[in-house]
Amino acid sequence: MEQLKKTALFNSYEKYGGKIIDFAGWALPVQFEGIIPEHEAVRRAAGLFDVSHMGEVEVKGEDALRFIQKLVTNDVTLLKDNQVLYTLMCYQDGGVVDDLLVYRFDKNNFFLVINAGNIEKDFEWMLSNKDNFDISLINISQSISQLAIQGPKAESILQKLTDMPLKDIKFFFCKREVLINGKKCLVSRTGYTGEDGFELYTDTENSVDLWDEILAAGKEDGLKPVGLGARDTLRFEVNLPLYGNELSKYITPLEADLGIFVKLNKEDFIGKSALIKQKQEGLSQKLVGFEMKSKSIPRHGYEVFIGEEKVGVVTTGYLSPSLKKNIGLALIDTKYCELGTTIFIKIRNKLNEAVVVDKKFYKKNYNK
């Protein structure tokens, strides 16, 4: 545990009963009270997450917009000031470098939020594609802490700590220099749980006090600290991808069914030609949802079969806390992607029957 990277909140985890694990080289809480009560708190009231392990990169300069437009699959030119965009970075062959959020402050000033396990790799990728663009690229990950409050009561709880009317922050927009209990924060409304909520980016020295103050403000409303376990079940139920599971250098955005975030009609971007070719030729594999017919629980990495033939692999699987069903996501041969198709998941050397279903297992409750 000593070799692992730690957020500024590491010493606070024990106070709230955090059980620490190694996550992508970080010492982070997998749970506090437990995955199920934490999951249910977010669905019914609110949960507070320490996501300070995520990476942040500043892109500034005359060519900032042009550079990011080349780097990512989505169309950054559509962004207004203080708007946020979900997108992906791809390799030349269409595989995914990372998925990320792009914050536009103005046409010369952007803020990128990237995955914790990919910070060094992503930043090197950006630098290697800087070419002659007139920009500065700064990895500010170590100086920024990020907290996320998610759930139907998130707005009312956080509103207790600020005079800024949070209802004015629309879905996938942000506001800078918001004072949360006197601490300056960038506040956005995106989320990774399928529920309404906010992300607070602040200087690292503010994070410990802010964590305690938000939990105190929401105590009577059912707010709980939430670990990585419930974060994964929450995002999975609403079909939000996790890099390393549904996305990787070996899986393209089209195969992950994220084509809506790939604008093949925009000017050139890294990986565009490979993705156009893949779309024209047809996908050989695609991400699907499935539901088990038995009480067996599918897990990441389990093999998928049709008869004797291996046709894919499970990317994520759980007993869904909200639906009380054993469900999963799998990347499988496109011949078997039709809804209602019977497939078999190999669990402890036994083939267990499952059926292909809609990936949108649980309805999102965003405040749009």
Rank of each mutant, 00 (worst) to 15 (best):
N118H: 15
I138L: 14
R104N: 03
R189H: 14
D203W: 11
S156N: 11
Q159T: 03
D122N: 14
E199P: 03
Q150T: 06
N181P: 01
N115F: 12
L166H: 03
K121M: 12
I149K: 02
D122H: 09
G117R: 09
A154Y: 03
K184G: 09
E195T: 01
K219P: 05
V226F: 03
A154E: 01
K130R: 15
K175S: 10
N108D: 11
S136I: 15
V113W: 06
S128I: 08
K184W: 14
F110M: 08
N118R: 13
S143T: 15
K121D: 10
D212L: 04
E120G: 11
G191V: 02
L127N: 13
N118C: 10
I169F: 01
A116C: 13
N129T: 07
T204G: 06
I114G: 00
K167M: 14
V187E: 03
N118A: 13
K175V: 11
S188I: 07
L200W: 01
A217S: 00
L127W: 09
R189E: 09
G182E: 06
G194I: 04
E120C: 10
K224D: 02
L137N: 05
L215I: 00
I138N: 14
V113R: 10
K130V: 09
E195G: 02
N118G: 09
K130T: 07
T190R: 03
K167L: 13
K170A: 06
N132D: 13
T204M: 09
L137C: 09
K167I: 13
A217C: 01
S141F: 10
S143C: 11
K170C: 04
